[in-house]
């Protein structure tokens, strides 16, 4: 555990909580892609199957349970509790175009050809592109609420901090996971355009961020 890893995890947690609270307080999931949230729930489920097989630390186990719990709570709020506010017409990204290639890639390129390892690899690849339905939705409607941009910023920052964590671990521990690093790079790059807009248009009198 190093400072980048910890702040990355906390940034990830902050993103998840921000989104949950936003939906809960406003009683609405307008502008939020339910498809992205389903993908994140799938990501956590397939990655944290090792909760059943191995114990790493109390921190590890509790964070995994919190991430999974919040992911399903978010999906529940969008598709059940506040379903009437869900913007399904604008959430039109075809997720099979992500899940199928990512599944194929996980079977082809993995550390070990076993079910658990392939599912872990699948979750790493899927996470890197799971935000695309959300970004697609924002580009389609042309706007995002400020709180949604905070969510996206924290979510993007998390993987960027993980990249620094991997550089740290390579130098000090000799640890190198090319699958995680490659997917983490792709994931971070997808947020770069958004980061730029978040910083440059994050003015004081801003209510909404327009994306191209």
């Amino acid at each position: 555990m190093n400072v980048f890893r910890l702040t990355g995890d906390l940034s990830h947690l902050a993103a998840i909580i921000i989104l949950l609270l936003k939906i809960w307080k406003s009683r609405s999931c307008a502008g939020i892609s339910g498809k992205s949230q389903i993908l994140f729930a799938v990501v956590f489920t397939t990655r944290y199957l090792d909760l059943l097989t191995s114990f790493i630390s109390l921190y590890n186990t509790s964070m995994k349970l919190i991430y999974i719990g919040c992911a399903y709570a978010t999906v529940y709020l969008i598709y059940v509790k506040f379903r009437a506010t869900y913007d399904g017409n604008h959430d039109s990204f075809r997720v099979e175009f992500l899940v199928v290639p990512v599944g194929g890639l996980a079977v082809l390129i993995n550390h070990n050809f076993s079910l658990m390892e392939i599912l872990w690899t699948f979750s790493i690849y899927l996470e890197s592109v799971a935000i695309l339905p959300q970004l697609f939705m924002i580009s389609k409607t042309g706007e995002a609420e400020t709180i949604t941009t905070h969510y996206l910023f924290c979510l993007g920052l998390y993987r960027a901090l993980y990249l620094l964590n991997w550089i740290w671990r390579y130098y000090f521990e000799g640890f190198l996971d090319m699958i995680a690093i490659f997917a983490g790079l792709v994931q971070t790059v997808l947020y770069c355009d958004f980061f730029y807009l978040y910083v440059t248009k994050g003015g004081k009198d801003r209510k909404k961020v327009m994306l191209p």
Binding site: H12, D50, I56, N60, K64, H111, N112, L176, M178, A180
Partner: peptide
């Protein structure tokens, strides 16, 4: 541990 085998990350 072998490369990539230790899944202590989230």
């Amino acid at each position: 541990c072998p490369i990539g085998a230790k899944k202590d990350e989230l």
